[in-house]
Design a protein around this nucleic acid. Structure first.
Lengths: 207, 207
DNA sequence: GCATGTGAAAATCTTCACAGCA
DNA sequence: TGCTGTGAAGATTTTCACATGC
């Protein structure tokens, strides 16, 4: 059956599956059942099957899923079958950690440029990337960079967002803890690392 | 009306409201309507009202919400009315950024200890915190530290989680991109910064 | 036999419209 | 009048049970 609408929640889970499958693939495993993959990832088997079924189903009954094939399919759905270049704005503590983070690679991301407003930082090199002046953000268009990563404080976040939108990026990962207004067709995903910690105590028993 | 079950999603949103209210409070604003708060945060007014109503409602009809009072109420719900001490495991790039991140403060978090397994790092000081050996994690119990933050690579994450659980933490913020098995009563929230980026292209129009 | 794929039921969450109160 | 609080409707998501196909 073809589904009319694919749940956003299913899309949110696909990268989880993908990461696990990439790990298993490295271990030379050929195929896996929803049951085993679920156990490996700490989720439910029927959730996995349902999520895949939204796209038509990728497995073989009685056998399971071919890992290599499944990886390809998920990458295609998520549009990760091409390398995406990203520009980082803000090379402070968090920004530097993002630049050095090895985890982006597995999904096919390439942080290809970094910008800062601090003259002391401009021109410095981190991981083969020379830090540029934020006012040069408009050069992005020519460089086929379609993603922006914001790692500046709140009060500079909207400005960074505006500059990235102007530079032609289609999606933004926002590490600042503030709302950024953008045109509707630009997708913004905000990660506030403190905010996630903030809902942890709620679930903890009183001491 | 009293609700039997409070949606997890509402809990997830409370820190967003809290952060916005804290900002407004700094600007000396006394009260605010759901409409204005919603606009400020980029969410819906009825969502805000509904979320607050799960806890009995905090506003005054015809007027709005008293900001100071509302902050207190949300903090109490999230159990943020007491300072929570956290222990960081893994002082690499990401761990250092977490240690230096100023955003935890507003929610009343205090990263009170940091651990690493690298002998070269042990004893070094970052932000008034002396890095300790991971094997000393068991000393946490005596220090009233009830939260753990994991910032180590995948292959060391489960081990770090086990050690934190043994040390008596009740909640874990996991920055490693891997599933960590813990006893049921321990709450784990996982943030994989690459995974969030991974679902961005899906929402972007093809170039 | 075995594991997927899926309709249908159940649970959860969001939106709405308006009653209730300052 | 204005804005909150909320029951009810609507939409979405999860869970389940089993039909389907290798």
């Amino acid at each position: 059956m073809r589904y009319h609408k694919i749940p956003d929640e299913a899309i949110r889970r696909l990268p989880i599956y993908l990461r696990g499958l990439l790990l298993l693939s490295e271990q030379k495993q050929q195929s896996i059942s929803s049951r085993n993959l679920a156990h490996f990832l700490g989720v439910n088997p029927w959730q996995i099957r349902k999520d895949f079924s939204y796209f038509g189903g990728f497995g073989t009954r009685g056998v399971g899923y071919d890992i290599k094939r499944l990886i390809k399919q998920i990458k295609k759905i998520l549009k990760l079958d091409v390398v995406h270049k990203a520009a980082l704005v803000g090379v402070g503590n968090l920004g530097s950690a993002v630049l050095a983070y090895p985890g982006f690679r597995v999904y096919g991301f390439d942080i290809a440029a970094a910008f800062d407003s601090n003259p002391k930082k401009i021109g410095r090199k981190i991981k083969n990337i020379t830090i540029e002046d934020v006012s040069d953000l408009r050069t992005l268009k020519k460089r086929t960079i379609d993603l922006g990563i914001i790692a500046v404080p709140c009060d500079a976040a909207q400005q960074a967002g505006d500059a990235l939108v102007k530079a032609g990026v289609k999606g933004i990962l926002n590490f600042s803890p503030c709302y950024i207004a953008v045109p509707k067709k630009i997708k913004v995903i905000t990660i506030d690392i403190a905010m996630d910690l903030a809902r942890l105590p709620y679930y903890m028993p009183a001491r």
